[in-house]
Write a protein that binds this DNA or RNA. Structure first.
Length: 868
RNA sequence: GCGAGAGUGGCGGAACUGGUAGACGCGCUGGAUUUAGGAUCCAGUGGGGCAACUCGUGGGGGUUCGAGUCCCCCCUCUCGCACCA
């Protein structure tokens, strides 16, 4: 048997053994533990972000196996999506083919990386056996009125040639490719997510403390609940068709309604055309609207950008005082928030203020922050958005704004029938249509007679046609595939056309957690009874970039599935852990931009190309910054155990971790030393009964220390998994300390020492097992421990006695400054400790000529003499 | 602008409810062994000082016997949101 740490053969041997043992399939009758890691898009290669994600999850899986839990640890593929289709356009390879290759390559990598998954449950969302049920779920949503079609201004990415959901647009650019999105008016499919806004907020209650705070906060902000009132303003437009009609507005500040001096509509608002039809302003207003609508998205959405508008020549009547206010069309009013119409109160809203000043519109103060120094309308330089006392507000004069005025104003509006209390959410319906090929086809048929007709369940799946052309421009391949489009109406059998849009891939990932429970089920997407056991997922691990996308969609799905009677749980993920980014040093030259390590001269920090100076920064690994590291090379050079352990050792996993090859080598050295030390001790403790709690007998100081450090580490590791935020870096540090103590103890000489030695070796092996599983398995095997795998053996218990020390070192301070140290028996009485401390020479020197006013004693830790 | 998080040696990071700041690792220095080593082992390693001592957790105040930790003000960085009526 090899004595060398031959990680290559050892790792492949144990990986084969795990498959053979079916180690990662649910086993035993322990309490279920569903550990889910966000499945990857099969790009063909794992990157360091995957490695940290799956290393964290893998440690959790292995720990809970040792805890005797019945663990579910599935893995699959988010295999629909744009990259495969773009690849098809470039190379002609059908997405199904390239995707399969990528999946095979990544699965191999994952196995090589030693991640423990139950491959018998593998799923791929692009597989007809999966998307059949994605389509089935769509039909259920459709039946309930939760999937619907509407014409709406939507985000269009001209580069990806498809529409995008709100959540996929960041800074007005496509989240995928960075292209600035356009607004288009299109008829599209939506999920009615907005009607779940309040439930999505309420659900946060039970996630508190189990999900990262920042994710909950991001979701709350995304959902954006705001309370206020809906008020109706009557249109005064003699001669116009809409004369006398009422326009509703949403406002959070009904207390400012007496301060309305004009009224704003979004340029997209349908009323604009009616208002100006046939008037002398028609041309001017419509032209201005056109300009505003075509304004660059980023520019129009920016807070700093110039506010522009145009007067329609029409008015509204303020329902409270009957006064008339001009109707303007303004670029800063958004059609998709509230009603697309705003009552403008320049004195108390900064945007309205800027607009009013620019166009010379009146400003009317109705809230005075201080009656002694009243605001003067003519000289105000900014709006007053805070509270104060109502003035010029009819019957409200003198009362406190905000709470009381808001209540009275809204109640009055309700009584008079022109308004009510109202709550608005920023969260919109989920736009799920995509004008692309590589996604689940929306199972709908359009019939001239019957209209929108769902495909009958028995006809699912609506398969993606294979004979299609991928072209760089133009319509989706589905739209031009006659054999796909032409069909018969399921209802009347007449000729009809299929929907040619496919579903957003976030639909696929909103329910994959359930499909893992019974991946081959051909009767239903998943079984409610099985789901009762496993859902909500006990631990979900993934990146924070999904905070307002996948994690909201999946919660919405769980709630709908619950309402459909398919799922008992209402929340999909009980606990969520988000890992940090993996960063590495990136180098930049003024002329040659981002450079890889090979392209610079590290000694002088200069560019090899031009000799110019190079600056560097720690930043997220990425292709553009050329600071990525291929995990493959690391596995090859150092092995899977080293890679897992070193990435987890670099720092707390919820913060970003810096990759540094030096520290990888440091961990490799540690594992090697761990191996060498334990392997050399194995024959010396062969057949020895390990020390157990409660055993009496003499042990020398070094062995007592070793036991103390090992049990201390065991305690720390157990708590890291069960309570304290998975700070595995300190667990691994503890393993190193244990090893250092063991090495300092030397060879065991007595029977007692051999017992303590064997106990320590076993503990150290088990403690390291979640992080370096292959190495642990091999040592466990060589120690001739029972069972086929260390992961089928119970996690050890802390021996409290081992943690105790006989003597402690106490710090002695005089007036808060450290002046000496004393060694006393642990648990020593206060008076005895103080007496010893007073006598210490280094302390006496500082007490000389002073009177002790106070003596502070922290048992076993510290003494402080307060002396004057 | 709003919201959140973070600033600790040359570097990554430790420090449980206020109680010996710098665990553990990297790097560095010296030594041993070696033909050699980006191998291994031993010792040292926050700054200043021969020493006694002193200064040190982004900066400035405060509370306390005692502050990295609590309070107030300020600076810097990262992330999220951003004309949301």
């Amino acid at each position: 048997m090899s004595q060398d740490y031959d990680f290559k053969s050892l790792e492949s041997r144990w990986q084969a053994k795990w498959q053979e043992l079916r180690l990662f399939e649910p086993h035993g009758d322990g309490e279920p533990y569903y550990c889910l890691m966000m499945y990857p898009y099969p790009s063909g290669a794992l990157h360091m972000g995957h490695i940290i994600n799956y290393s964290i999850g893998d440690a959790m899986v292995r720990y809970h196996l040792m805890r005797g839990r019945r663990v579910l640890t599935p893995m699959g593929w988010d295999s629909f999506g744009l990259p495969a289709e773009n690849h098809a356009i470039r190379t002609g390879t059908p997405p199904a083919e390239s995707t399969k290759k990528c999946i095979d390559a990544m699965r191999r990598q994952m196995i090589r990386a030693g991640f423990g998954y139950d491959w018998s449950r593998e799923i791929a969302t692009s597989h007809p056996g999966y998307y059949r049920w994605t389509q089935w779920l769509f039909l259920k949503f459709f039946e309930k009125g939760l999937a619907f079609r509407k014409r709406a201004p939507v985000n269009w990415c001209s580069s990806c040639r498809t529409v995008l959901a709100n959540e996929q647009v960041h800074d007005d650019a496509c989240e995928r490719c960075g292209t600035v999105v356009d607004q288009k008016d299109l008829e599209q499919w939506f999920f009615r997510m907005s009607s779940y806004a309040q439930r999505l907020l309420d659900g946060h209650e039970q996630l508190q403390g189990k999900w990262p705070d920042r994710v909950i906060k991001m979701q709350k902000a995304w959902i954006g609940r705001s309370e206020g009132a809906r008020l109706e303003f009557e249109i005064v437009a003699p001669g116009a068709e809409c004369h006398g009609e009422k326009i509703p507005v949403f406002t959070t500040r009904p207390d400012t309604t007496y301060g309305v001096t004009f009224f704003s509509l979004a340029p997209e608002h349908s009323l604009v055309v009616d208002l100006v039809r046939g008037t002398e302003r028609e041309q001017e207003v419509l032209e201005a609207c056109r300009k505003m609508r075509n304004q660059d998205r980023v520019e129009r959405a920016s807070e700093e950008s110039e506010k522009t508008g145009v007067f329609t020549g029409r008015h509204v009547r303020n329902p409270f005082d009957g006064s008339l206010a001009e109707i303007w069309v303004c670029n800063y009013v958004l059609m998709d928030y509230g009603t697309g119409a705003v009552m403008a109160v320049p004195a108390h809203d900064q945007r309205d203020f800027l607009f009013a000043r620019k166009y010379g519109l009146p400003v009317k103060v109705v809230i005075q922050p201080s009656l002694e120094e009243p605001l003067a309308e003519a000289s105000m330089t900014e709006s007053h958005e805070g509270g104060g006392v109502q003035v010029a507000s009819g019957p409200l004069d003198g009362i406190d704004s905000r709470v009381e005025a808001i209540r009275q104003m809204t109640s009055y509006a309700k009584e008079q029938g022109f308004g009510d209390f109202s709550v608005h959410y920023r969260l919109k319906d989920w736009l799920l249509s995509r004008q692309r090929y590589w996604g689940a086809p929306i199972p709908i048929v359009y019939c001239e007679e019957c209209g929108i007709v769902p495909v009958p369940e028995a006809e699912l799946p609506v398969l993606l046609p294979k004979e299609v052309e991928f072209r760089p421009a133009g319509d989706s391949p589905l739209a031009t595939c006659e054999s796909f489009v032409r069909t018969r109406c399921p209802r009347c059998q007449r000729e009809a056309r299929r929907e040619t849009d496919t579903m957003d891939t976030f639909v696929d990932s909103s329910w994959y957690l359930y499909r893992y429970l019974s991946p081959g089920d051909e009767e239903r997407p998943f079984d409610a009874e099985t789901a009762r056991n496993w859902i909500p997922v006990h631990q979900y691990v993934g990146g924070i970039e999904h905070a307002t996308m996948h994690l909201i969609y999946a919660r919405f799905f769980a709630m709908v599935l619950h309402d459909l009677g398919l799922l008992e749980a209402e929340e999909p993920f009980q606990r969520l852990f988000c890992q940090g980014m993996v960063c590495a040093r990136a180098y930049r030259c003024e002329t040659h931009k981002w450079l890889s390590k090979e392209e610079i001269d590290l000694d002088g920090m200069t560019c090899k190309e031009c000799g110019g100076p190079v600056t560097s920064e720690m930043t997220k690994m990425s292709k553009t910054k050329k600071n990525g590291v291929s995990p493959d090379a690391l596995f090859e050079q150092y092995g899977a155990d080293t890679v897992h352990t070193s990435i987890l050792f670099s720092g707390p996993p919820d913060q970003s971790v810096d990759y540094n090859e030096r520290s990888v080598r440091g961990i490799h050295r540690f594992l090697r030393r761990f191996w060498d030390t334990l392997v050399s001790l194995v024959p010396k403790v062969s057949g020895v009964e390990p020390w157990t709690a409660g055993r009496s007998g003499d042990l020398s100081g070094n062995w007592k220390t070793t036991r103390r450090v090992c049990h201390g580490t065991l305690k720390r590791v157990t708590e890291a998994f069960d309570k304290h935020g998975f700070h595995f870096n300190t667990c691994i540090a503890g393993s190193m300390e244990s090893l250092n103590a063991l090495r300092a103890a030397g060879d065991p000489k007595t029977e007692e020492e051999r017992a303590a030695c064997r106990e320590s070796i076993l503990l150290m092996t088990q403690i390291l097992a979640p992080f370096a599983p292959h190495l642990a398995e091999e040592l466990w095997d060589r120690l001739e421990q029972p069972g086929p795998s260390i992961f089928r053996q119970p996690w050890p218990c802390v021996d409290q006695d081992a943690l105790a020390v006989e003597e402690v070192e106490i710090a002695v301070q005089v007036n808060g400054k450290l002046r000496g140290q004393i060694r006393v028996p642990a648990g020593v009485e206060k008076e005895a400790a103080l007496a010893t401390a007073r006598e210490a020479a280094s302390v006496q020197k500082h007490l000389q000529g002073k009177t002790i006013k106070r003596e502070i004693y922290v048992p076993n830790r510290l003494i402080n003499f307060v002396a004057r």
